[in-house]
């Protein structure tokens, strides 16, 4: 099967500081990849480059057949096919949960309002907060907000979902409800790249694990191999601290 995401020799600098070094990554459709590593290792930057929230300076990134570069005219079209979930939820606080979900459907996908609302309610039901649809984000708990954010991304019917530390800003009690939603999503066959420290989740759903440190991909392995017998010393050290 051909790759849905392909990164070749990607380099990125913030001013003089190199955050991504010679990144090579291929993702097959329906593959689930969990990215882990210490903070500042470039995990978030890596997945933010995939929908060009960050610009890379060298190398090529190809998403679903289109190369992403500064010349890309239809970057909005590509972004609409790549859903993203953020650490801080980033719901739109001035809109109700339902409007958060329908806004892009109506204005980007040009669906009629009624159809957009049906689709949104369906997705909200999928994450079990359809009863909160008319509330504003500020009225919901962190876990509910993050599930709403997932539903908002799913409404666009993306081919790929990117998760940027989706549970890091949550109270311990609420982490599970969000992870459950993500597990369901994984079982449904979505292509996912997840940056997370939740190793239990990684073991359950990931096909492949990636370990990053100082801007490099240090180790990439099948999930079992990664946890059972990691190759590099850096990975061993990291795993010994986190598990």
């Amino acid at each position: 099967m051909s790759n849905i995401i392909e990164l070749k020799n990607v380099n990125k600098w913030f001013d003089k500081f190199q955050v991504l070094k010679e990144i090579n990554l291929e993702v097959k459709p329906k593959e689930k990849i969990v990215v882990c590593g210490p903070s500042g290792s470039g995990k978030s930057t890596l997945i933010r480059c995939i929908n060009r929230l960050e610009e890379h300076q060298e190398g090529t990134i190809v998403v679903d057949g289109s190369e992403i570069s500064e010349n890309t005219k239809n970057i909005e079209k590509i972004r609409a096919e790549v859903g993203m979930v953020f650490q801080q939820f980033n719901l739109f606080p001035h809109l109700s949960i339902l409007d958060n979900c329908t806004l892009a459907l109506i204005w980007v996908k040009k669906l009629p309002k009624k159809k957009a609302e049906e689709l949104a309610m369906e997705n909200l039901k999928g994450v079990q907060i359809d009863d909160q649809a008319l509330k504003f984000p500020g009225q919901l708990s962190g876990g509910q907000q993050q599930r709403a954010a997932i539903a908002r991304a799913l409404c666009m019917e993306p081919k790929i979902m990117l998760f940027d530390e989706p549970t890091s800003a949550l109270d311990p009690e609420m982490i599970k409800e969000v992870l459950d939603v993500m597990v369901d999503l994984a079982k449904g066959g979505m292509t996912m790249i997840v940056v997370t420290h939740e190793m239990g989740f990684a073991k359950e759903v990931a096909d492949n694990m990636i370990f990053m440190d100082e801007g490099r991909i240090v180790e990439r392995a099948k999930t079992n191999d990664f946890f059972e017998n990691p190759k590099s010393d850096r990975t061993k050290l990291f795993l010994s601290q986190i598990l």
Binding site: N90, L91, L103, A104
Partner: peptide
Amino acid sequence: LPRGQYDAAKSLGMG
């Protein structure tokens, strides 16, 4: 406004 609002809008495909 926090940068996350721009990120979220962009990630939904808004120009």
